[in-house]
């Protein structure tokens, strides 16, 4: 709200409900986004090619094609962050959307403030040139090039696996990472039965980096989906 994007950010809204599009337009334009609207998947893909949006808001329940198909088509050539907006709340669908290239997932109805905050986080992280070399969230500082992790200015020692996991989170800060994605990236396994190992390592990271490991503020659990590294100011 109070933060204005440095340059005009073009956001493509793909949703079949005209009323939702109008409301999103009002909210987004008041936050100085430039809004492009599409009512169908096909129109959305065409507009994405034409306008090269910086962000995409995609509804999964489109009349002409499955939201996941739109995701796949967009991901074939575009790296723009995609936020899925859906009334579907099943974890399996969130996981599927995230694994098909969505950067974040928000269920309808949602608070305007929450949507704008999530969009800011996406924009901050997905523009490599604007990405600070040093990641800060709350009292956590991660210097990826120097491999230095600090909490409240104090150096924290991490094992190799813990660091690999943290790096993955930092590189995708603010984004929900699915169990399957984390297991594949860090352990190279594709077996959700192994979620226990992941849970143990998240516990280690929380013990070392959270102020209160029982009330995590950084490594948030996305129930049934995975984990997210919160970007706190």
């Amino acid at each position: 709200m109070n933060e204005t994007p440095p340059e005009k950010t073009v956001i493509l809204v793909i949703d079949d409900e005209a009323q939702i599009r109008r409301l999103l337009r009002v909210a987004l334009e008041m936050s100085a986004y430039e809004v492009v609207e599409a009512a169908t998947g096909a129109e959305g893909i065409a507009l994405a090619v034409e306008c090269q949006p910086d962000l995409v808001l995609l509804d999964l329940g489109l009349p002409d094609m499955e939201g996941e198909a739109v995701l796949k088509r967009l991901r074939e050539w575009s790296q723009a962050p995609i936020m899925v907006v859906s009334v579907r709340r099943r974890e399996a669908e969130k996981i599927s959307a995230l694994d098909h290239g969505a950067n974040d997932y928000i269920t309808k109805p949602f608070g305007t403030g929450e949507l704008l905050a999530r969009l800011r986080a996406l924009r901050r992280n997905m523009r490599p040139q604007a990405k600070p070399e040093i990641f800060r969230s709350g009292d956590l500082t991660v210097d990826l090039p120097a491999r230095i992790v600090k909490r409240q200015g104090q150096l924290v020692k991490l094992t190799a696996t813990e660091y690999a996991l943290l790096r993955l989170f930092v590189q995708n800060a603010g984004k929900a990472l699915t169990h399957g994605h984390l297991l594949r990236e860090i352990w190279g396994v594709d077996d959700l039965e192994k979620t226990g190992v992941l849970r143990v390592y998240i516990g280690y990271l929380r013990d070392k980096l959270e102020a209160d490991p029982t009330k995590p503020r950084l490594f948030l659990t996305e129930p049934g989906v995975g984990y997210r590294l919160a970007v706190n100011d």
Partner: peptide, 17 residues
């Protein structure tokens, strides 16, 4: 949920923006 989302969006826009 779509109409609920619309109402919530509208009230949210008014209250927050």
């Amino acid at each position: 949920r779509t109409p609920i989302a619309a109402i919530q969006g509208a009230t949210g826009n008014l209250l927050e923006l």
